[in-house]
Design a protein around this nucleic acid. Sequence first.
DNA 1: CTAGGGTTAG
Length: 473
Amino acid sequence: MTWLSPSHLLRQRSPPFRAATSPRLRDLIALVLMHQDRRRQLLQIHTQFIAHQVFDRNPAPWRAFLKAYSHGPFPLEALHLFRHARQHLADDTFAFAFVLKACAGLGWPQAGAQLHALMVQKGFEFHAYVHTALVNVYVVSGCLVEAWKAFDEMPVKNIVSWNVMITGFAGWGEVEYARLLFDQMPCRNVVSWTGLIDGYTRACLHVEAVALFRHMMAGGISPSEITVLAVVPAISNFGGILMGEMLHGYCEKKGIVSDARVGNSLIDLYAKIGSVQNSLKVFDKMLDRRNLVSWTSIISAFAMHGLSVEALELFAEMRRAGIRPNRITFLSVINACSHGGLVERGLAFFKSMVYEYNIDPEIKHFGCIIDMLGRAGRLCEAEQIIEGLPMEVNVIVWRILLGCCSKYGEVEMGKRAIKMISDLERESGGDFAVLSNVLNELGRFIDAEQARKLLDERKIVKVPGIALVGDIQ
DNA sequence: CTAGGGTTAG
């Protein structure tokens, strides 16, 4: 069985495997298929056969394969390829950059560290591109201390090295470090700004994100598509319709509305800041650039604003256009039904999702269904669904039910929901804002004295929570 | 050769 090992195959330089009819090759493929080791392994071995037959010692084609694999959906193949073709690639800095890219794609810091050792051995440890790629491996894997160390010891840093650190740290929520790096770097480009803006948006520091965006524009740096994508959530949370229209206008001027992702995020932005008309305008203009996300975004925009019939019409149109809905499309569709009181249709869509489209329902889908039943006053059915959920129940579904209970004055069920919510919050060490919301809801059901009693109980419960925060710091 | 990415129940 040792001949199954690809490295063994590579060592056999001659004679080369002649054709696909070679019994050895046939056996090998049969074996691979028999072992059900799927496409991945077959692909890997197949590639090596071709590469071996055609290229043999020449490193360039190996490098091309490595590049293709490291950027594609199968980064593991890049690692395999590298390991088996090391004799061709060991001194190639390009190959190291690619294979490190693959490690980043896999989020494998250990593999990165091994390559680091190899880099030291080969004497190009401080090659700027390769070392940047190494820093990136650490940063995307969340090994921020390692990343910082590796970055710190780089004798020559380029702008990409800094940007790797900024986007990485911002992406892991370390906005302050990202800011520090941003302020320290000798010169910044649009990626540096975008990375930081994205960090602020993710950290819900929307005002800062928008301020930074304006600062960037004022500094004469032109936002890219990605910058727009990064700043949109901030504007939809904090900016008004005017700011949204300004951004939209800017995108048109710069010609980046033609990017489907930008168009889609504008649809969503307008929906969230209260202008479905503008959402529709953007959607209409997209014409042939519409994709599944565009359709889903516009359906969800209509659903958000209670335009259920229109949302369902769009869904029908989407299907006529031959686009297959996904789990998020169905979420929006069921949400539309929920907001419009179209209970039976919503249930039918849910069924169709599961049985016709073979999409496994998630907690969010059930959340919509529960909301739909609850809004229509079918509270018992809603509660039964929660109790029979095939997955872990979260606070949100109970909160949905609670909202419906308070709407219909269902005191007993409401109390049960509150109990579940406070239990779940306690488990996750919930915060005071959430707690006070629950108590607010509670006030609708029980008298002041009972509420106070519950509050006292909660205070007792909160003590360990406070102590825990102390421990962390 | 190394950096940024859209829609998701209340």
